[in-house]
Amino acid sequence: MDFQRELDARGLSCPLPILRTKKSLADMASGDVLKVVSTDSGSVKDMQAFANQTGNELLSQSEAGGEYIFFMKKK
């Protein structure tokens, strides 16, 4: 999937992946896609909850080798 920016949130625990995601999205343009890579299993539900509450769209999420990969489209 095409993305404009990547956020490495590996090794970070709640709530840092969400806070960094928010910060990364802040200076992106509407419609841009952010890729987030996390190792925090709690971020699976949290990223969805973040999307639901902020209106940014979680395009996809997947897991590979203990890493969680998210693509978030900025509102």
């Binding site: 709640c14 709530p15 969400i18 806070l19 995601t21 928010k22 973040f50 509450q53 902020t54």
Partner: peptide, 11 residues
């Protein structure tokens, strides 16, 4: 601090 920072991130 966790709840406050997260809530702020959620708007």
């Amino acid at each position: 601090f966790i709840l406050a920072s997260t809530a702020a991130a959620l708007g």
